[in-house]
Design a protein around this nucleic acid. Structure first.
Length: 214
DNA sequence: GTCTGATCATGA
DNA sequence: TCATGATCAGAC
């Protein structure tokens, strides 16, 4: 499958409801998202033929394309931020921008917008028109500088001091089963410390531009 | 625990 | 109201 074929396949989703998607895939859909937060994203993966897995690479490695679903309200406004990848804390290879999973995942993203208004019954929500996006020069520069800023703090052993308010398009937030989960990181003396795992997220400041422009 | 898929829920 | 911090589900 090449890029065009993938995009054409994604366009077939346009206008389908969640229920129709589930029927087409022979899945029994959940009644809501509280206990099935990732269900929709995984159903779309199944439809487009993404290999299920947990390795930190783009969904379509050969095409360098990452797949993202994104909830939008009736005014076309993005409702939620978008998870990108885990924040590297000990993996040195990941401290180089061009080697980072974050860079690789953001080169090309296939966005699948869908109705995310909470008052809409989940099964009746419709899927929108897919968007194949790559960052503009300006978006790229901001993403890179956000990333470098955050990684610099990690390298200086200041992981505990990075809050979600840092970063214009890209920021970090907790990413774990719960707030007691611990993983290794660098302390301010260069020693190994235990800390809560974080992930990179895209702010709506960026994703709104992408959805609007399409 | 570590990764993926994400949205929930609460405080300012 | 909305951004930050917390949490849910599943594969491995």
């Amino acid at each position: 499958m090449n890029q065009t074929e993938l995009y054409q396949k994604a366009l077939e989703l346009s206008g389908l409801t969640v229920l129709q998607l589930a029927q087409q895939l022979n899945l029994s859909p959940p009644n809501g998202l509280v206990t099935a937060k990732g269900w929709f994203g995984q159903a779309i993966e199944l439809f487009l033929g993404v290999q299920a897995g947990c390795s930190p690479v783009p969904d379509f490695p050969q095409l360098q394309i990452e797949l993202k679903t994104i909830p939008v309200n009736q005014k076309g406004q993005v409702i939620e931020s978008t998870y990108v990848t885990t924040l590297p804390l000990m993996n040195h290879q990941q401290f180089i921008w061009h080697e980072s999973t974050c860079y690789k995942k953001l080169q090309n993203v296939l966005w699948i917008p869908f109705e995310g208004d909470k008052h809409l019954p989940f099964l009746q929500r419709r899927i929108g028109q897919a968007i194949l996006w790559s960052p503009s020069d300006e978006q790229y520069d901001i993403l890179k500088s956000d990333w470098e800023h955050i990684i610099e703090w990690v390298l200086m052993g200041k992981i505990e001091q990075i809050t979600g308010s840092i970063g214009q398009y890209l920021h970090i937030r907790p990413k774990a089963a719960h707030s007691r989960v611990l993983t290794k990181s660098i302390g301010h003396e260069g020693e190994i410390i235990q800390t809560l795992p974080r992930g990179f997220y895209l702010r709506t400041a960026l994703t709104q531009q992408i959805i609007l422009k399409a």
